[in-house]
């Protein structure tokens, strides 16, 4: 991963195997870290780097979308991703949900004193690769170092700016009764993958996180932009949190078909075992789309032909009954309410 890393560092970072408080102190060591680690990864190739307090950006076509997200995941590396990829994709995906083409990111690092430089470099390389894949530029950043024990290795904040093409308007306000609800893939992979590493749970077969950019998929979906009413990425709180939020903000009811909701076998098994409901488990590369009923099949086909969608499915409909409530029709025909959780899901006793 870091083979092609260009180390043109005035203070050779090899002298420091770990991050020191001085790396955030504003002096030579900090400059060494910035010029030796961050700039080679993020600076625009072929252009001289001019130190400045701000990135100055060209105006773009369309309206601007602006978002921010912070990433505090433990462990930093997990099957299918790491905190660096997550920090890029997370903010990119938030922009994409507004229909925006992601253009620029900022990165704010909070590093724990004693963090291995190798770990930091792996994360930075990962961010560089993810940004290159999406076609977004990391144009500004900041680094702080805190005393050992005051953060968990690396915390990253990214903010993002994107351009929303004219005529694109994805918002709960456009959701109307009769609309179809789709998901772009099977649910719960990220939450279960991270939990399995964090808690040392072992399952048969690898279960990588679904951590991925949704920008390409949304770009493809713009072909049907007029029919797409609302998008949500299904991160914390999973599908349940996203659809409940849509139902409440749009003032509509949403009915989901439990048997239609795609869940991979290892995720379903882990959830059964731990007493978790996969509807509430986090994803990092899945979205829900509310689309005009007549266009549902078209949007589904667009999703099916895009690699970022895995088993896209129509899972429910928007209704004018019981506004603000999400109902799930179970495999036996019974209905139940999908409720907001009080906090995190807790594995049960037996």
């Amino acid at each position: 991963m870091s083979d092609d890393f260009n180390l043109n560092c005035p203070v050779p970072i090899d002298n420091h195997k770990t991050v020191q408080l001085a790396h955030g102190g504003g002096g030579r060591m900090m400059r060494g870290l910035v010029e030796g680690t961050f700039l080679p990864a993020f600076a625009e190739k072929g252009k001289p780097f001019v130190p400045h307090d701000s990135a100055v950006l060209e105006p773009c076509d369309g309206r601007l979308a602006f978002t921010t997200d912070s990433f505090v995941i433990s462990p930093l590396f997990f099957p299918g991703g790491d905190i660096g990829r997550l920090a890029v994709y997370g903010t990119v995906n938030d922009l994409a949900m507004a229909g925006a083409k992601p253009l620029y990111l900022s990165d704010g690092f909070i590093l724990e004193e004693g963090l291995s430089m190798e770990t930091l470099r792996r994360v930075v390389c990962s961010m560089r690769d993810a940004a290159a894949e999406v076609g977004v530029r990391i144009v500004t950043g900041d680094t702080k170092v805190v005393d050992r024990g005051q953060c968990d290795g690396i915390f990253i904040n990214t903010a993002g700016i994107g351009a929303v093409p004219d005529g694109v308007e994805f918002s709960p306000g456009r959701v109307t009764p009769g609309d179809a609800v789709l998901v772009s893939g099977d649910l719960g992979r990220h939450g279960i993958a991270v939990m399995s590493v964090r808690e040392g749970l072992e399952f048969e077969g690898a279960l990588p996180s679904d951590c991925a950019s949704l920008a390409g998929l949304v770009d493809a979906m713009l072909a049907a932009a007029a029919d797409v009413h609302c998008l949500r990425d299904l991160t914390r709180g999973g599908l349940a949190a996203a659809v409940i939020e849509i139902a409440q903000h749009a003032g509509v009811g949403i009915e989901l078909e439990e048997s239609a909701i795609p869940i991979a076998e290892p995720v379903a098994g882990a959830c059964e075992l731990l007493g978790l409901d996969p509807l509430y488990v986090a994803n990092e590369g899945r979205l829900a789309a509310v689309v005009r009923a007549e266009a549902a099949e078209v949007v589904l086909e667009i999703m099916q032909s895009h690699p970022a969608a895995q088993r896209p499915t129509i899972i429910g409909t928007v209704t004018d009954r019981h506004a603000g409530v999400v109902e799930l029709r179970g495999p036996l025909g019974g209905r139940r309410i999908v409720d907001e959780l009080s906090g995190e899901q807790m594995p049960r006793i037996c």
Binding site: G253, R321, H322, A323, D339
Partner: peptide, 24 residues
């Protein structure tokens, strides 16, 4: 509190009554 508690199960699955189609 508990996911297996009767009150939590009723709260979670049967709470909101806002129309004829509501299971509660």
């Amino acid at each position: 509190v508990s996911s297996e508690g009767a009150c939590a199960a009723y709260y979670r699955y049967r709470r909101k009554c806002s129309g004829r189609a509501c299971p509660a």
